[in-house]
Design a protein around this nucleic acid. Structure first.
Lengths: 360, 360
DNA sequence: TAGGTTTCCGAAACTGGTTTCGTAAAGGCG
DNA sequence: CGCCTTTACGAAACCAGTTTCGGAAACCTA
């Protein structure tokens, strides 16, 4: 660390000086305390004065410096996001959209996003603690909520506002947290309903490792869909622990080699569903006729295969935007228990599903 | 906007009060000005006093509040990153690693990362301007540098420190900017050298649209590699404008249907190289024997195919970390012209390349 | 019209730091 | 040993805001 001589060179502050609240006050013939209260909506300012101040502020391009405000208020208008580096799929191709959604929404309200990362729980706690201690963020967005999420417990204990992407406990009454979630089970039910309406009677399901919360939710939706459609649940047609494209292909081979193979396969993720395309090519099966497929996620590649994969298009951008909006509302005083949103993932029909070829 | 009554409720500040510089000063029997100067390395503090202060600060867990410092210094120890939402590939699977690299390095130095996004140039300028005006960041990291990048020009004009991922002008003397880059051309040369050493004489190249800067760089590397190996450059073997897996497959078909087909194909991106696997399966070709392939990027999926794709593993995490380090160094006063780094992408050998099958 | 309220603004304290400036004490020199 | 520098710290101003408090003027009411 280099020594600092008595007179520290200050860098050239040649950029035109920004307008401060005192400049604004002087221009208006008021004191800065009045201007501050006018701008912050205090009730002891005359409406006419408030309007004058607002107008002049806009005219002079005045914008308060959040850091200076933070010294007094403790709020910096910054949202925090902690990425988990040990996430096996690196958040796939969705991270950019997700971040875009958060930042665009935050930007509209004059907030910003501070991101950090951690590769273990202890590191996460250290990171969060530092961000809070340094007053760099006002609240957190938690992606990838798990059942009984340690982050939620940690932040709750510290009375730090946060919103979760995904609910921690399903069915049970909420713990008063704020969340945004996509109806995974509902999408799977809708897929089964769709396939059953087309005439499919044996529909298989291929899902990710059961350690993922969403894997269980989607599997439950599959089973519920079968029940709704009046179809029996055959355990042979349900394969879990499938994460990669190649594993998805392997699952398809096993299913098609059954004595009574399914006519349709519902994949819990697009990435694994693409493996079925490889198998279809191997075996000369026409997807959408000989074998129907439906995926989930809406990854870009799903549109590019032939025929395009029918899937549920998760809108990461929208998720990010809503999460930001929910957190900002909470930071402005809304009760977190009121800030919950459950949305449906819309179906994006490709050509990968159709009526089963009638056996003759 | 709701009215604020005269006495604003302040939220429950029940969390134990943080130690302030004045607490520290009192505990030491010094004034806060002395403590501040001791902590910031001023030369007019006795070494013994400095040590005493440092020790007590550690003991009491004192950490200055960056926002309060910022009011006076104008520096907030925050790096800015502007994502471009219109990037066609959404930064692929690399964004999480890249962000992880930046934030981990920044965190070590006590800095944080503020990200924002834009979907057009004017939006980018507005976003950057707001971040600067609000003093939310001290400098920027620019991903995806293009030739003659408008962002660099914009920030230069405002005298805002920044580092670029990728050089703007190659060959020409630098404009005094700071950058980090991966030697694209060098990797392609190395690939050709490797294939030539294995005995390949006709090596094709499949590259992305020429509007991408890196596409041209990699193509140049291919050509240089051929020249170094003493091989002729056959324009028929060079296919550009290929971005997706399916297009990569199509390119492979065209090349293999030539009267004198190549024995090896160098793909500028892994995603497109995977298309050649589909073609090999179609035609019963054994990859690594009948057809050699080398890719570039090191995407996760490249390890999972059979045989694994030989590729150049770009280390996004490292790139992020180094960019953060370069920017922080610049913000601490180092001349940006001295802060440049060119790294090689290391080869990650799979089994997709080998000696050509001898024609008989 | 006197007396009590309200309304509305200014003055000043405050936030948590940094930096300038002044000066007492210690050290160097002849 | 006296004078001139250094050394090392304290006092106070400062940064850009917010918030508390007090009081003059305007508004009611009787």
């Amino acid at each position: 660390m280099e020594e600092i001589r008595r007179t520290k060179s200050h860098g050239d502050k040649s950029r035109t000086r920004r307008v401060r609240i005192s400049d604004l006050a002087q221009a208006l013939g008021l004191t800065k305390s009045t201007v501050s209260r006018a701008l912050n909506g205090y009730s002891d300012i005359a409406p006419t004065t408030r309007a004058r101040v607002a107008k002049m502020a806009a005219q002079m391009g005045y914008a308060p410096m959040p850091y200076a405000q933070a010294v007094r208020t403790g709020r910096v208008r910054a949202l925090g996001l902690v990425l988990e580096l040990d996430a096996p799929d690196r958040y796939g191709p969705f991270l950019a959209d997700f971040l875009g959604g958060i930042t665009q929404e935050a930007s509209l309200e004059g907030w910003t996003l501070t991101v950090s990362s951690s590769s273990s729980r202890s590191e996460m706690e250290a990171t969060v603690t530092r961000l809070l201690q340094e007053h760099k963020v006002d609240g957190f967005i938690l992606p990838r909520t798990q059942v009984d999420d340690p982050r939620a417990a940690f932040l709750s204990a510290k009375h730090v506002p946060f919103v979760m992407f995904g609910r921690t406990d399903h069915g049970r009454p909420d713990a008063g947290h704020s969340w945004y979630d996509i109806d995974n089970a509902g999408a799977m039910r809708a897929a089964i309903t769709r396939l059953a309406a087309m005439g499919h009677r044996r529909i298989a399901f291929v899902g990710p490792p059961a350690s993922f919360n969403f894997a269980l939710l989607r599997r439950d939706g599959y089973r519920e869909g079968l029940a709704q459609a009046g179809l029996a649940h055959d355990p042979v047609l349900e394969i879990m622990e499938v994460a990669e494209r190649e594993e998805g292909a392997e699952a398809a081979r096993r299913l098609l080699d059954l004595p009574d193979p399914p006519s349709a396969i519902l994949y819990a993720t697009d990435a694994t569903a693409l493996g079925a395309y490889d198998v279809a090519r191997e075996r000369g099966l026409e997807i959408g006729r000989d074998l129907s497929l439906i995926g989930y996620d809406g990854i870009p590649e799903a549109r590019l295969v032939t025929p395009p994969l029918t899937t549920f298009a998760v809108d990461s951008h929208h998720a990010g935007a809503r999460l930001a909006a929910l957190l900002i509302a909470q930071l402005r005083g809304t009760d977190p228990a009121e800030l919950t949103e459950l949305v449906e993932a819309p179906l994006r029909a490709g050509g990968s599903d159709g009526p089963p070829r009638t056996r003759e």
